[in-house]
Amino acid sequence: MDAEARLTDEKPLTEPITSFDVACRQVTSYLKQAIPMGIWLVSRYDGENQIYLTVNDSFYGTRPGLSMPWSQTLCRHMLEHRTSRVTPDLESVPDQEPVSGRKQYQVNAYAGVPIQRDDGHLFGSLCGLNPSPMGEDLRGQEPLLRLLGGLLGCVAELDLNRTDLQRRLQTTQTASETDELTGLANRRGWQRILNVEEERYRRLGEPGAIMYLDIDDLKIINDSLGHEAGDEHLRRAAKTMREAARGTDVVARLGGDEFCLLMVGLTQQQVIDASARIQSALAGAGVSASIGQAVFSSATTFTDVCALADQRMYAQKSERKASPA
């Protein structure tokens, strides 16, 4: 039975496509019925890893949230060797052999297409894997996969643009969520934004990080120069952080000398670079601060990511005290 007939025979898809994750669920569900393979999945490329967002699996035991280094994936190989995007028998393609884990995980047939942003950048991939070789008619499904991959790219672009607009709107906080001294989000506002962002991350897999900062020597300034000087020091720190951050980053003051940032769309190396840039900007403004950061992880909650960033911040503070510049 061909794909069109299968779609006609299946129950209608009644869930409205209101977001990228819904579209992914419907596409992988349809492909699992129309082109039966061991697994159909949609993944996100975050610059370093392939993260599985949506998984329809009847063989491999894969689940959403798992990831693997991009360099070891068949999807990377597919992009670099355009002739093998749909391969019924991987044993017949010699240049597939270097792909790590192919035999270990029993992958002998592959069908996949890239999912791209409007600007041509890679978002991720739509792919199917099968433990045994498949018939040559699998090659004839490539136009359908290209069509579905292109449609997923359009939905992803719309969802990401909507998400970006929502983040920008979040910079206008209500009075109950704004720190009076600095004008930044307060602890209550930070927690609300964090909850919203975690839901987005589970849906879209967009990489990013949480950064914790602790202003050094605030007590000394308060005791020696007075609390007005201490407040001015905090305002200067807040202003510097806002200017050093991007427009979509969230900067918040948790209280006292504790600040935090939410930064989305950065790889791990970019997060390290951003941390160094912010610390340098603060030093240039006469503000000494200790910083710790942790990237988003599908294996943990954002509460755990915050705790790790906080732990790393205190580790840096201890190091700075042990070896003052």
Score class of each variant (00 low, 15 high):
Glu97Gln: 15
Glu97Asn: 07
Glu97Trp: 03
Pro98His: 05
Pro98Val: 08
Pro98Trp: 04
Val99Met: 05
Arg102Met: 08
Arg102Phe: 06
Lys103Val: 10
Lys103Phe: 06
Gln104Met: 10
Tyr105Cys: 03
Tyr105Pro: 00
Tyr105Ser: 11
Gln106Glu: 13
Val107Met: 10
Asn108Val: 00
Asn108Gln: 15
Tyr110Arg: 05
Ala111Glu: 05
Gly112Tyr: 02
Gln116Pro: 00
Gln116Arg: 12
Asp119Ala: 07
Asp119Lys: 01
Gly120Cys: 02
Leu122Pro: 06
Gly124Met: 02
Gly124Arg: 00
Ser125Thr: 09
Leu126Arg: 00
Leu126His: 01
Cys127Trp: 02
Asn130Pro: 02
Asn130Trp: 02
Pro131Thr: 04
Pro133Trp: 11
Pro133Val: 07
Gly135Met: 03
Asp137Trp: 09
Leu138Glu: 02
Gly140Trp: 08
Gln141Arg: 09
Glu142Asp: 00
Leu144Pro: 11
Leu145Glu: 01
Gly150His: 10
Leu151Gly: 03
Leu151Tyr: 13
Leu151Glu: 08
Leu151Asp: 03
Leu152Trp: 00
Cys154His: 09
Cys154Ser: 09
Ala156His: 13
Ala156Thr: 05
Glu157Gly: 13
Glu157Trp: 06
Leu158Asp: 13
Leu160Lys: 00
Asn161Thr: 15
Arg162Phe: 13
Arg162Asp: 10
Thr163Cys: 09
Leu165Gln: 14
Gln166Tyr: 05
Arg167Ser: 06
Arg167Ala: 10
Arg167Lys: 14
Arg168Asn: 08
Arg168Phe: 09
Leu169Lys: 09
Gln170Lys: 12
Gln170Met: 15
Gln170Trp: 11
Thr171Trp: 08
Thr171Ser: 15
Gln173Val: 03
Thr174Ile: 15
Ser176Thr: 14
Glu177Trp: 01
Thr178Ile: 12
Asp179Thr: 12
Leu181Tyr: 08
Leu181Ala: 11
Gly183Glu: 11
Gly183Phe: 05
Leu184Ala: 06
Asn186Asp: 12
Arg187Gln: 14
Arg187Leu: 14
Gly189Asn: 11
Trp190Pro: 01
Trp190Tyr: 12
Gln191Trp: 12
Arg192Trp: 11
Arg192Asn: 08
Leu194Gln: 14
Leu194Thr: 13
Leu194Val: 04
Val196Gly: 00
Glu197His: 08
Glu197Ile: 11
Glu199Ser: 12
Arg200Asp: 04
Tyr201Met: 12
Leu204Phe: 02
Glu206Lys: 12
Pro207Arg: 13
Pro207Ser: 09
Gly208Trp: 01
Ala209Lys: 03
Met211Gly: 01
Tyr212Thr: 14
Leu213His: 05
Ile215Gly: 06
Ile215Trp: 05
Asp216Trp: 02
Leu218Arg: 05
Ile221Val: 15
Asn222Phe: 01
Leu225Ile: 03
Gly226Leu: 06
Gly230Thr: 04
Gly230His: 04
Gly230Pro: 09
Asp231Leu: 07
Arg235Ser: 01
Arg235Asp: 01
